[in-house]
Design a binder for these strands. Structure first.
Lengths: 133, 133
DNA sequence: ATTGATGCAAAGGCTTTGCACCACA
DNA sequence: TGTGGTGCAAAGCCTTTGCATCAAT
């Protein structure tokens, strides 16, 4: 996993990766911290931020910028689309095929070099729907 | 414009709307502040934030959450896609037709109520391309 | 033993907010 | 003239960072 790099697999880093891999809820750094401290009470929020960033930089996890104020993290690094609840902020995966033709079309009308694209749906999650009615 | 509401059209609010309407650069609140203070030296950053938020809440301007740390604003309220330079953060419009079939497809695979979707392209802008080579 | 990682706390960057005064309607 | 808005400064929220110590290699 981290072979060949200067990275060490500390207990903290291992636990962070393990816990993130367990969920599909796209937790924020603080969400992670709250879960992690139950199993490792002395872990610090700074360590959580540092490790999520390092894992992201090494392509091991994904860092999501799906609107809202906080960044979110995902152990699933396969490109996929997301939906965010405009009421509670919850983020879920949308399992449809990436529309690569979006990039083809965009290339025709921009002088940017296109690297990738993101699609984010906005909506209301089942829980908030229930709460509203 | 603000008819029927309790909103007042102050000199500050008017100038903010006027300057935002002039550009297509999707400025941040601070970008706006830097431009505005040249014409109205005593305007405060707080006023800029407050007014951009109020104009957004009233559907007069758009507030963009296109990744990066700062929010951006756009006087063009017609839904459209954007591209962001991963190097300098610049944001530009992508003039292609919205792909409404994305929402149709997404509806089939989620239990969220879908309200809208956003597409963000990531790439490198012409200026940064030049600077790289 | 070397040096990357941790915990803690302080600092940073962006945004919001409390308050007394101001100026639209 | 009433009340929403402004300028200013302080506070808030999320994230990063400096530093002494710890621990993985």
């Amino acid at each position: 996993m981290l072979t060949g790099s200067k990275l060490r697999m500390t207990k903290q880093r291992q636990l962070i990766l393990e816990e993130l891999s367990k969920v599909t809820s796209h937790p924020t750094a603080d969400d992670m911290y709250q879960v992690l401290r139950k199993k490792m009470p002395r872990i610090s929020l700074g360590t959580v931020y540092r490790n999520l960033e390092i894992l992201y930089e090494n392509g091991i996890i994904q860092k999501l910028d799906v609107g809202g104020t906080q960044k979110r993290f995902d152990a699933n690094i396969i490109p996929h689309y997301h939906i965010r609840c405009t009421i509670c902020g919850r983020v879920a995966d949308i399992h449809i095929e990436p529309h690569m033709e979006l990039e083809t079309e965009a290339k025709k009308v921009t002088d940017f070099d296109i690297i990738q694209h993101r699609v984010e749906f906005l909506g209301i999650c089942p829980q908030c729907k229930k709460r509203q009615s």
